[in-house]
Design a protein around this nucleic acid. Sequence first.
DNA 1: AATATAAGTAAGTGATCACTTACTTATATT
DNA 2: AATATAAGTAAGTGATCACTTACTTATATT
Lengths: 197, 197
Amino acid sequence: MEQPITKREKILQATLELVQEQGLNELTTAKIARRSATAETIIYRHFSGKQEILVELLQRVGSDFQKSAEVIFAEDISPAEKLSKMSASHLSFIKQTKGISRILFSEQIHLAAPADPLKIAARAIAANYRNCVKQIICDGKITGDFDADLDAETASRSFMGLHYLVMHEWSLDSFSWDLQELNTSIADYYIKAWKAK
Amino acid sequence: MEQPITKREKILQATLELVQEQGLNELTTAKIARRSATAETIIYRHFSGKQEILVELLQRVGSDFQKSAEVIFAEDISPAEKLSKMSASHLSFIKQTKGISRILFSEQIHLAAPADPLKIAARAIAANYRNCVKQIICDGKITGDFDADLDAETASRSFMGLHYLVMHEWSLDSFSWDLQELNTSIADYYIKAWKAK
DNA sequence: AATATAAGTAAGTGATCACTTACTTATATT
DNA sequence: AATATAAGTAAGTGATCACTTACTTATATT
């Protein structure tokens, strides 16, 4: 017998790939079954339905993302350097998990009821990330890396929003250019914009 | 007989309302017919299909948005003041046309072929807006409102991205708070972040 | 060898959806 | 009054989809 975990993992992996390639709207249980080399019936032995697969995927990738932010946050470097690293890590996250970003910003989530588990997972990921950026900004205001008068709320929104927009433009351009090219210009921009006047 | 234009307008209006309330995924021709007090058959006398209705809606609202940006751009005020007004107008646009924003950022558009008319319309709206912001920044670098070394490309992305993120958070929070409250903090933030060091 | 468990197969089910066909009715213009 | 045109009605069509039922087969553990 295969490890009990294997088939389940294959279904999750297949779902991730399909969302990346074709998006949430095109995701069907028939396709998931075909891609994971099984039958639709098997999916329902492991998950209650489509939604449950997506919730698990989102939680996994969300916790990876969170961990990578926490690692950077805990490093013994200046707030300005942390910011640089956060940006680079965000860009590489977008690049690696196009599919997940699509769930995060999908209409399904926007229109879901507040208690929807997919919506809860998405909000947690976004809130956690922005708090992390906000904390780096506050630290930087103390060390003098950033202007003491900087509005951390708006600044963190601007930082996160830029990455969001870049992802949007990249996707609208059919992923035809290299995201990581923007690494230095983004970091340079924020370090200059936020430094003391 | 009614004015030839009326029924067509009713269908467009009904579609806009439905997208605002329920999103693109929930939009069906049956609902459009019901909301515009007609029969599904009538829809197909005015439009080739669902997609054509959406393209027309997007083009109309897009050109309104563009016009409002152009009006601000042509005013005889400082670049910093133009920026303030752009932000305020963007927030009120988001507030008024939640439905349209949903089309702009929808998966349908992201995954559409480059030649898809809906995608073309969406890209045009976004590119036009960002160019307008970029031009204001370049003007401000000359007048001295903004730092001469400011990276207009990244700065305009940050500006547009912030509004994008605010819309995203507002939507995730089920439109429960007032967007316009952010007016002054956004303008203040950018004027300070971009001014000469 | 017996047993438990997951994988697999085959067939289907009810609901939804965009869009069509064929025909009739109301009304503005001439 | 005749005509053109849009609105309206009634019925349907083929495709897709998430999920189900009932049953059989393979394999790891005991």
